[in-house]
């Protein structure tokens, strides 16, 4: 791994945000809107019904922020690749002395940067609007954050693989990949709400354990170590599988001439 190359790539992607403030605005706009809509909806329901909704609001706000961690991490990887495809820069990039792992590391860094910005903005909004202090939960959520980021990175590699294989036609799939797993991940509800068949799929995803673990922390304040370790184990499996798929697709794209095709489309 050459740090200089990784920093060069990170500089290339982050300069886009420096140059164009609209991009920075867009980065926080959607998560903020999501938080506003879900938060106010919950408050509205709370007013219309009786019962203790305080915990429910915390579940929902927490889930919204957590989901964005996964989504932004995936986007950091996928959008970086798409940026080079849109600007027809892929040939210049892959004809430069860059190892694939350096390229992936740079896109993962971009995911981390995106997540950091989004989490800070959303946490402040949640605190101001709903008195939900993410940092009340102390450091127990940090490992779950990290697990979601790693899973988002795996999903990002899968997204790039799809684009490498099917070109621009798969661009919309790159956005859709996280949403394919969203219903199974039990983001906004507990797993037992799902039908039995879907529960089997749900327990194969690291994100399910993370969201269950997050709810446990919000509910009891206690760390669900069991969920954490299982999520970590499955995450490692996903990372290897998605990495293997990416390397295989990249090699295949070189073999079939797809890399040059999508680069000049």
């Amino acid at each position: 791994m050459n740090i200089r190359v990784i920093l060069g790539l990170v500089q290339r992607y982050s300069l886009l945000f420096v140059r164009n403030p609209v991009r920075g605005f867009e980065l926080v706009f959607w998560p903020a809107m999501e938080l506003l809509v879900w938060g106010f909806l919950t408050m509205f329901i709370q007013k219309q019904t009786t019962g203790d909704f305080a915990l429910f609001i915390r579940f929902l706000i927490g889930a919204t922020i957590f989901w964005d961690v996964l989504f932004r991490a995936q986007m950091g990887v996928a959008i970086s690749f798409l940026e080079d495809m849109w600007t027809r820069n892929l040939l210049n990039l892959f004809a430069a002395p860059i190892r694939l792992r350096e390229y992936l590391a740079a896109t993962a860094c971009m995911g981390l940067l995106r997540v950091t910005v989004v989490v800070v903005v959303m946490s402040l909004l949640a605190l101001g609007l709903y008195a939900f202090n993410l940092f009340d939960l102390e450091w127990s959520l940090v490992p779950f954050f990290a697990l979601l980021m790693v899973f988002g990175f795996s999903l990002g590699m899968i997204s790039i693989s799809l684009i490498l294989r099917w070109g621009q036609a798969a661009e919309s799939l790159a956005w859709a990949v996280p949403f394919m797993i969203q219903p199974f991940s039990a983001v906004f509800y507990s797993v037992d709400t799902l039908p039995k068949v879907m529960q089997h799929v749900a327990w194969c995803l690291p994100s399910t354990y993370v969201f269950e673990g997050m709810r446990e922390i919000v509910r009891t304040g206690a760390m669900d170590w069991n969920s954490l370790w299982i999520a970590a184990g499955i995450n490692i499996g996903f990372l290897f599988i998605s990495g293997a798929i990416f390397y295989w697709m990249f090699s295949n794209a070189r073999k079939l001439g797809l890399l040059t095709k999508i680069a000049t489309q």
Partner: peptide
């Protein structure tokens, strides 16, 4: 058929590729 990133300036492009080429 291969462009440099068209949303960066000339100077930024050259700096980025300088780094990539060591």
């Amino acid at each position: 058929y291969a462009n440099l990133p068209n949303n960066l300036t000339v100077w930024q492009n050259l700096r980025v590729f300088s780094r990539l080429y060591g």
